[in-house]
């Protein structure tokens, strides 16, 4: 047995004689005695030890074979995927005027028509082939709740369809939260609404400056009121977009949520991310340039780990660090625009050259359009961070280079953050899996 290629090892100062070991392909975390680590290097493990460490992704029979298998991991994952995930841009209308809105010139009074909704339902039914058992729709906008009637119609139909097939159906919303009143949520829950991701950018003052209503009025109070009204009906996730100026105000939001009784038991997840740069060709009315161009930027590293700590130390849930292929790579994942155009990434909807089909004609080959094999090169396959990165974000590569020819390498980001994030997970998650082997 040999050490896996996809492994990070850190010193363990609070437990002398041990190493903190993280498998990037298994997302397993272990404290490994240095003696055992030496045994791996000296090929002196017992059969029991080999079995145990193999299950954690720490050792493999052959590193070359592991690398070869990794190059096909997405194919195997796609072959075993029993789900179908469709993100639906149900409209491009919005009642907010966010300072950084990346939809910029794409925004407007554009709504999915009844006819397109019918085509969407037909498309989903056709794609939900034998062997599928989970249908997940994510409604985006614009602001999706400006089309709540159409969401109900689409979901009602698909819920009946999956029920007849003995499969599961659920949908989620990515919403600004201002229209998610209790009566709206009650109605949508009946057709499968399971979760809503609501964006709040810091404390009231900061949020209202970044995400006002179109009228200019603050939206913070309305959102908090709606979360309080609906958090017993729907899994509420709180998201937020920070920049180098605003991120320090985000802990005030967490304090406020706690004070208002929106405690970790009532909020399913909290996750904050940096505002990303838009492509240069975008014309936007917003005069805003505090975006991030890469997760490798030092201020993003600092802000990201700081906010993760603030979230976790208050007991709120935030995503674990785990393998995460881009949804572009998932063959049963599509993004459908309000006009029926089909894409592979929500950030690239409406951009010339990235449409891979439409609801009437189906999906064409998109291998080259999205450069699916971007990460299948020696540098990426040899990188211990590959399972967490898979070549990074193609949207960010496109924004920086105007193409997806080069990867969006996240090595500097993980070099700077991974150890901290693993230690946060160890410290704050009350792991039920702690055991000695």
């Amino acid at each position: 047995m040999q050490l896996s290629r996809y492994l990070k090892t850190y010193p363990c100062e609070d437990k002398p004689g041990y190493l903190l070991v993280y498998s990037t392909k298994k997302a397993s975390v272990s404290l490994l005695p240095e003696r055992v680590y030496s045994s791996i290097e000296n090929h002196a493990l017992s059969p029991d030890e080999e079995a145990s460490l193999s299950g954690l992704g720490i050792v493999v029979p052959d590193r070359k074979e592991e690398r070869r298998q990794m190059s096909h991991i997405i194919d195997r994952l796609n072959a075993r995927n029993q789900g179908l995930t469709i993100s639906v841009i149900i409209n491009m209308a919005c009642n907010f005027n966010c300072v950084y809105c990346y939809e910029g010139s794409l925004k407007g009074s554009h709504y999915m028509s009844e006819r397109t909704a019918g085509l969407l339902i037909d498309f989903v039914k056709k794609r939900f082939t034998e062997g599928k058992n989970l249908l997940q729709l994510d409604f985006y906008g614009g602001e999706p709740l400006m089309s709540s009637g159409l969401i109900s119609e689409i979901s009602g139909s698909l819920r009946s369809f999956t029920s007849e097939r003995g499969a599961s159906y659920a949908f989620s919303l990515v919403t600004n939260g201002s229209l998610l009143k209790r009566n709206v949520a009650e109605k949508l829950v009946q057709t499968g609404l399971a979760s809503a991701r609501i964006t709040i950018d810091g404390d009231a003052e900061t949020h209202n400056r970044y995400r006002p209503f179109k009228t200019g009025a603050g939206s913070f109070d309305a959102i908090i009121r709606n979360i309080r009204e609906t958090c017993d009906l729907v899994r509420i996730g709180v998201g937020g977009n920070f920049d180098r100026i605003s991120y320090e105000r985000f802990p005030l939001l967490l304090d406020y949520l706690e004070k208002e009784g929106l405690t970790p038991g009532k909020i399913a997840e909290v996750r904050f991310g940096p505002v990303s740069k838009r492509p240069d060709e975008d014309r936007s009315p917003a005069d805003y340039n505090e975006w991030s161009l890469s997760v490798n930027e030092p201020w993003v590293v600092k802000a990201g780990t700081f906010l993760r700590e603030e979230i976790m130390r208050r007991g709120y849930n935030t995503p674990k660090i785990r393998p995460m292929p881009c949804q572009i790579e998932i063959s049963d994942s599509f993004v459908v625009n309000y006009d029926g155009g089909i894409y592979k990434c929500p950030a690239l909807v409406g951009r010339d050259g990235f449409e891979v089909g439409n609801l009437s004609d189906g999906v064409a080959d998109y291998q080259n359009v999205y450069n699916l094999d971007l990460w299948k090169n020696d540098e990426c396959l040899d990188c211990e961070y590959l399972p967490l990165c898979f070549g990074g974000c193609r949207y960010m590569a496109y924004v920086r280079d105007g193409s997806m020819n080069r990867s969006d390498c996240k090595r500097p980001h993980f070099d700077a953050t991974l150890e901290t994030m693993i230690r946060q997970d160890v410290k704050y998650r009350k792991s039920s899996s702690i055991r000695k082997d």
Binding site: K26, V29, L31, L77, T85, M324, A347, I434, D437
Partner: peptide, 30 residues
């Protein structure tokens, strides 16, 4: 052997279900 398992991890091939965008570029902008 003295290994302390803090998290058993996941099977990568089972994780294709509903996905969140890794960088949330698209997800959190609305």
């Amino acid at each position: 052997m003295g290994v302390v398992i803090l998290d058993c991890g996941i099977d990568m091939e089972e994780m294709a279900g509903p996905l969140a965008c890794c960088f949330s570029v698209a997800v959190t902008f609305r």
